[in-house]
């Protein structure tokens, strides 16, 4: 007698939760078994914090605070933006290896693979974040705000990273090979994070770049983190709405990314198959 007849019928919610967890666990196991990825996620943040604070610390003047205080929020933002690209290359890799065909032939929740992907990448980014904060504390970074504000800052950075993971996951399902994602992220995300207020105050930039930096969503994220960690200097904040209300701007951006890209990802996933 076929066991298929006795398969339980689960409610969509149970299925969503259980399948999402099963795939998350699979991704975390993968991560544990490929230490190069983990080392990368740990070493790179340490290196960035040390390089920037020690090399540029003496040269870059920031009004009303020292460079290390100013720098850390920028490095946090850059790391979570780059960390999210892993969602894209990992999706592309799964597609290439054929495991996506296995998942799609199973009666599992249609969003579980994506939930699992973004969840496990959130774990990876959280690990990076903790490492960076500890390194920051070692080189003299201090949080000058209340504990709830600090937690809100961490939450905001991770929320941004999580929603950006969905954007990258969609790209990962659209490209032909995982390498495309890595190259594209290098070409697009480096300028995006560097032409911002992450590493230097944006008013030091030449006019066209300054304009770009002020409207750059990464700048809002950095500004929001600086405010919540109490690391802002005395320099005036550019007089544009997104910089004057950085926390709200980030929350709106995160909502838009989730509302647009979660459904797009789920729809795309329902039609992809290994090449």
């Amino acid at each position: 007698m076929s066991a298929a007849a006795t398969l339980p019928t689960w409610t969509p919610l149970t299925m969503w939760y259980s399948d999402g967890w099963t795939v998350t666990k699979r991704n975390l196991t993968k991560l544990k078994r490929s230490p190069d990825m983990l080392v990368f996620a740990v070493i790179q943040p340490i290196m960035f914090v040390l390089l920037f604070s020690q090399v540029y610390g003496g040269a870059i003047q920031v009004q009303g605070t020292d460079y290390t205080q100013f720098l850390m929020a920028g490095i946090f933002a850059q790391t979570v933006v780059f960390g999210s690209t892993f969602s894209g290359s990992a999706m592309a890799q799964d597609l290439k290896e054929g495991i996506i065909d296995r998942f799609r032939s199973l009666p599992m929740s249609g969003s579980a693979v994506l939930i699992g992907r973004t969840n496990s990448d959130l774990v990876l980014n959280t690990i990076s974040m903790v490492i960076m904060m500890l390194t920051g504390l070692v080189v003299g970074w201090r949080v000058n705000s209340s504990f709830p504000e600090f937690m809100a800052g961490v939450g905001l950075l991770l929320l941004f990273s999580y929603s950006f993971s969905w954007v990258m996951a969609l790209l990962g399902m659209m490209v032909k090979t995982p390498e495309v994602i890595n190259n594209a992220s290098f070409l697009i995300l480096f300028p995006l994070t560097f032409i911002s207020n992450a590493f230097v105050p944006s008013d030091t930039l030449p006019d066209p770049l300054r304009l770009f930096a002020e409207w750059n969503p990464v700048s809002s994220l950095v500004q929001a983190a600086r405010e919540l960690f109490g690391n802002v200097g005395t320099a005036p904040v550019p007089d544009i709405w997104t910089m004057q209300h950085p926390i709200l701007t980030v929350l709106i951006g995160v909502s838009v990314m989730l509302v647009v890209f979660v459904p797009l990802c789920i729809r795309k996933f329902a039609s992809i198959s290994s090449r």
């Binding site: 196991t29 495991i99 032939s105 009666p107």
Partner: peptide
């Protein structure tokens, strides 16, 4: 349909790291 079928492709769909 997925509740009653089993599929094995010419290119093994297994997770290499598991």
């Amino acid at each position: 349909v997925r509740r009653v079928i089993g599929v094995s492709g010419q290119y093994a769909a297994v997770d290499e790291n598991l």
